[in-house]
Amino acid sequence: MCETCGCNITPGNEHLVRGDGKHSKTTDGRAAVEVLTGLLDENDHQALHNREHFDRHNLLALNLMSSPGAGKTSLLEATIEALQGELRIAVIEGDLETENDAERIRAKGVPAIQIATGSACHLDAHMVHDALHQLDLADIDILFIENVGNLVCPASFDLGQHRNVTLLSVPEGDDKPAKYPVMFRAADLVLLSKADLLPVLDDFDPARAERYLRHLASSVPFEQVAIRGEQKALSPWLDWLRAEVAAQGRRRAAGKTARPSVQPDGARLHTHQHASTYSTSTVETVEAGG
């Protein structure tokens, strides 16, 4: 089991409902309490603890999100091959059903834990916590968390990751950032995957996709990747990974951690409220890209 942080079960709202808690009466005599906690307070709390696990082991945790089939597992397979002997990798796989993706990763000689979410269309911090305790985090530089293929709700659940990576594959069309703003706004890196298909699907305009992304006030890097064809391209992605691993190492040396540059509202609140009862790490919210 996991050690607890010493805060009680109401870390977020305790000081608001007690002490000088804004407790008043409505005209018809009911007690009215101003709360102001995130709806996903429990999740956000667990996510905070997951991040502490990751930081304790000095590893970089990345949350990979995309629509189903955009190429997340394929990218991981190619990445494992490319970084063999350089960086140690482990993977947590989230899917509604099957062990397939974890088996694909294990076939590359890397530890992988499969989470079968059943009916849940996203991973949450509790599921990730259960999975991370099945891994030996001491021997890992990068932990990839491949989220359930879904462009909607995974963005709302903080898992404790340091960075979000969102894939947009060429066959999906270049307007996806405009149609799924919540997801694309949350990304610290957007990868245009299956870029080898650009010559075939020539109505996909990478410049237009990037413009839609910028409309979300995002200045994060937008890079192409392909694991197939002549134009096999991985280097901007691998360089980003190396830079992030190095940055995480520097943060740990300075006793700091990082969170994705855009976080679900509740996650942001939780840090503030939690800081008073428990803090091993100062949070550094880095402006990505630039």
Partner: peptide, 20 residues
Amino acid sequence: YHTKLISGDEMLLASLEMSL
């Protein structure tokens, strides 16, 4: 596009009214 969101991403429990 160098903007910061001031509001629009809230997902908050704002208040509760209870009978005591």
